[in-house]
Design a binder for these strands. Sequence first.
DNA 1: TTCATGTAAATGCATAAGTCATATAGTGGC
DNA 2: GCCACTATATGACTTATGCATTTACATGAA
Lengths: 141, 141
Amino acid sequence: MCSHHVAAGCRRGDAGAGGSEGATCGCGGGRMKRFLEPCLLLLLLRGQAHGYELLRQLQEFGFDPDQQDPGLMYRTLRRLERDGYLTSSWDTESGGPARRLYEVTLEGKDLLHAWAGVIQRNVQTLQAFLRSYRGQAGDAE
Amino acid sequence: MCSHHVAAGCRRGDAGAGGSEGATCGCGGGRMKRFLEPCLLLLLLRGQAHGYELLRQLQEFGFDPDQQDPGLMYRTLRRLERDGYLTSSWDTESGGPARRLYEVTLEGKDLLHAWAGVIQRNVQTLQAFLRSYRGQAGDAE
DNA sequence: TTCATGTAAATGCATAAGTCATATAGTGGC
DNA sequence: GCCACTATATGACTTATGCATTTACATGAA
């Protein structure tokens, strides 16, 4: 059984209406594509921060810190910076290894607002799916 | 401006707090990864159907038929069959080109139930995000 | 001094998923 | 024959993610 699946609480065949077990998974935890992006933007809206700290704060959005991939987060931050949604500066004063401090730009805020709209619509789509599912799944057993 | 983006109603920089335009997009319409899969399973729960028909019915779940990729759907159907969640048979009687009729297996139903759980949790995650966003975005302007 | 541990950022490689274009083929109308 | 509609499928390419690994500084313990 694939690990990220278990962590996502998904374990195919084990959700809701019990059933078979051990199937291989591919649902990716069911997360929205690129969900990390709006989460980082929102966290940075609170004020500048560096990656390592964001990594911990991401728990708030359901990212399990134990099996979180720092690589993905750092890459996402650099991409957002490259595209003008964030700016960064090195902080070498605070002791420990140098940390890169990120800050959201105006474009970054716009992007976050756009994401909020996308997420809102996505929630509605998913709820429509669930309604349809609940209206049908009972009968079909 | 990328087309699927517009279709998703997202157009970066144009949602909510007006702003810049024309930025390239990468939000993938904000859809959940592999969302096509549970949608197909749910449609097939109503009874066997062939791909071309499913393609139209997918509108129900927010897939725009105009810019829908049949290739992805057919591949998804074949994968589900390969993995034992669907079975298929050729229908050559109905006139027109032969159509492949799909039917959900018991494993397929289990898979759909699992998906429903994943989607339910995903909705909660997204709503948590939106609450946090709404609590913050106002202040930070 | 050396070594382990925690902090911090990043790269390399492989696979998965999605996008876009194109191919193949039957059937019916003109 | 030629075109449009129905129906399924493949190929090439890009992006996103997953997992492993690398680099480097700092601090305290041995």
